[in-house]
Amino acid sequence: MINSEQLTHYVFAVRTAILANEADIECLDRDIGDGDHYINMKRGCEAIAGLGETLTKLPLVDALNSIGMKLLSTIGGASGPLFASFFIGMSKTLKVNAPDSAMHIAAAFDAGVQAIMQRGKAQAGEKTMLDVLIPVAEQFNSLAAQGKSTQEIAVILKQVASEGLESTRSMLATKGRASGLGERVIGHLDAGAKSCQVMIHAVCDQVLNDPSNQPSP
């Protein structure tokens, strides 16, 4: 259901989306973050895009692992190791279960999210990227198990990602610089959650626009 060529298309779509949302992400990070989140996200996106055709020539598991290793050596701050763990976690899972079904892709996505949780020692409800990623992973697994179409899954995951982002507005923060701001963070969205929402929307839009995913007439 996914190959290295499609993965490369997703990479470029994510880079475009992150660049297009520069103002929003930077504003959120200035409000309650460290102020370097967008810079690190942009650096990571450019580094992965720089791999270019190299990714398309690799087996999917190797392409995902290469992305993880590139992020680990490129992005500063907390984001690098976390996103690197995500892609490496996906790669390890797909090495066991081939990416030939929605259930296997969902399981790999979930494994990547679990890797972030372990690396960051974090969970849902702490005003982080996980408030988007965890519900998306849970819904992805559920929808795949129900046999939903690729199109249906993409539409619903976009909605779940947006709801996850919005949920951070009312949360207190327990991680990073924001954790020291107490109740001042209430009313603000988390920048990491915003980045994840943007990336999930970008990938889902690519899926929705892919002719191979269109339902048969």
Rank of each mutant, 00 (worst) to 15 (best):
S149A: 09
G77R: 05
C196S: 15
S170E: 13
I116W: 08
M129W: 03
D131V: 04
R15D: 15
L172P: 01
E26D: 12
T174V: 06
N40V: 03
Y38C: 08
P215D: 09
K158S: 02
G164Y: 03
A49C: 13
T168I: 07
P135H: 01
K95I: 03
C204E: 00
Q159C: 02
A124F: 06
A17S: 13
N65W: 09
Q214F: 14
A107P: 11
A106L: 02
C27M: 05
Q139M: 09
M41A: 06
V11T: 08
K42F: 00
Q139A: 12
T16W: 00
D110C: 14
V155Y: 06
S79F: 05
I25M: 11
L60V: 07
N40A: 08
M69T: 05
T93A: 07
E46C: 10
N141V: 04
Q6K: 15
L172C: 03
V14Y: 06
D190P: 15
H104Q: 13
E126D: 07
I75N: 02
V96T: 14
E22C: 13
D31G: 04
L133I: 01
K158N: 05
A111K: 12
D131I: 03
C196A: 15
V207F: 01
V136F: 02
E22F: 09
H188T: 08
A173L: 13
L71V: 04
E126T: 10
I186Q: 11
E26Y: 07
G147C: 00
N141L: 10
L133N: 07
V185K: 10
I18K: 06
R184P: 07
A173R: 09
L172K: 08
N21V: 10
T150C: 10
A191F: 11
H104C: 12
G33S: 06
L64H: 05
G120M: 11
G44L: 01
L51Q: 01
G44M: 01
L64T: 06
T8I: 03
L130V: 03
L7D: 07
F87I: 05
E166M: 12
P217T: 05
I25N: 08
A191R: 08
L60K: 06
M103Q: 15
L189G: 06
E53N: 12
M69K: 04
M69R: 02
P215Y: 05
G180R: 12
N209M: 15
I88Y: 05
G52W: 01
D36G: 02
K95Q: 12
A13F: 12
M1D: 15
I200W: 00
R184V: 08
A193Y: 05
I39C: 02
G35L: 04
A124Q: 11
A191E: 13
S66G: 00
M1T: 15
L60I: 14
Q118C: 10
E22P: 13
A154V: 01
V160Y: 00
A102H: 12
